[in-house]
Write a protein that binds this DNA or RNA. Structure first.
Lengths: 222, 222
DNA sequence: AATTGTGAACCTCTTCACAGCT
DNA sequence: AGCTGTGAAGAGGTTCACAATT
């Protein structure tokens, strides 16, 4: 009821939330899911931090960008915080997703359980290879990626996963953007470009393993 | 020949290189591979930056941590810089890798071409499910993950990929560490802990897609 | 007594801007 | 004239430390 504290409470005041904060929120979300599973009622920032290898101050700061969800002296109500984070991340609803590129990785992603469990439904899979059209993966049929625009609209898809070779990636992205896709998870090992308003995240497994090789090669004292 | 500039040239003086820098080096490395493919002789920081959606200053700064590889007025020699980055990242040699957890994702990783192409050889795959033991994936046979210690040593493996469910992840990591593994790429959707000297990187695809859902949900005025 | 929420201090990473080579 | 290498400035993210609250 204090006019000062109030106006920063309601979520997403466009205060520029860092990428790192968003990723950590996903972790807190999982921690809370697991806490619900073990019938925990309250949880402290300290405990959330310990489970995720972070500091308690970091956890509190991250949450504070979106509101004051805890109670001083008591901690956070598990169910309550879970619900709040779910709204912040947009996990209180479902999202239709398509996958372009049904190779080795694409195929695994179609079957990747965690996407569904979090409300990301793969509704459409496409490939440019005509030999694959009509084949089924799970209960989906591989479509011609030339028909992207039509299919994406029909299925009301806003998120796309790109799992094509580097050489085809930008072309695929352009077509997806043209079809109205607003967010792209890119597994191709190149940087892709999309206009403002289309969000891109890169997931490059080769880069990750190379970081390990760097660490082993430059194993410094300490 | 100048004593001042010299002593920071030779790599890995343990000057604490950031994770972000290492990831970008991997990108530059790919950019250079592709430049070699198109018979380019020199390349500027400006061009490397453009291809990767970065600034030229960033590229030069990243490289400067490891030495002065360019020539003022001319840019970088492509083959030369490629060789240098390859040494920095430890890609001038090969690495033996094992995968624990041959489910949906693990199976795709066994067949993931880019690992091999960069010198990461999958030599051993393991699972705790006895029904899988003896099955083959590619030209590897699935082994009992109880035999981890023995197998890891026999195959001289230093890098492990963990693709097991969250509930099993920490136990698997502990066993890998005990077996002498020095670097772990973790696909399990939980934070895992390893002693100092063992490097861990997390690759959590669910978190990545949740970042997209956050962006779409909080589509702010920019 | 316990634990949050947060301004301020601190630290790290990125960008600027220009001297120094080619 | 062109482009690198880098110290310094700037921006951004993390941790500290403590008042506020239960």
């Amino acid at each position: 009821m204090n006019s000062r504290t109030q106006n920063k409470t309601r979520s997403s005041e466009a205060a520029k939330i860092s990428d790192a904060t968003v990723k950590r929120l996903s972790k807190y979300y999982r921690t809370l899911q697991s806490a619900i599973g073990s019938n925990k009622v309250t949880i402290s920032s300290e405990e959330i931090a310990r489970i995720n290898g972070l500091t308690a101050a970091q956890v509190r700061k991250d949450l504070s960008f979106f509101g004051a969800f805890g109670r001083r002296g008591l901690g956070y109500n598990v169910a309550d915080l879970h619900r709040n984070i779910s709204r912040i991340l947009g996990l209180h609803r479902t999202w239709n997703v398509c996958i372009v590129g049904v190779g080795n990785i694409g195929r695994a992603l179609v079957r990747f359980k965690q996407f569904q469990e979090q409300g990301f439904y793969i509704k459409l899979i496409m490939d440019s290879d005509s030999a694959k059209w009509g084949q089924t993966v799970g209960d989906l049929t591989i479509e011609n990626s030339e028909d992207c625009k039509e299919l994406v609209r029909r299925e009301k898809i806003r998120i796309a996963i790109v799992a094509v070779p580097a050489s085809a990636a930008q072309r695929v992205v352009d077509r997806l953007v043209d079809a109205g896709i607003k967010a792209i998870l890119n597994f191709a090992p190149v940087s892709i470009f999309a206009p403002p308003g289309v969000y891109v995240r890169n997931e490059n497994m080769a880069i990750e393993i190379e970081s390990l090789s760097f660490a082993l090669t430059n194993k410094s004292r300490k």
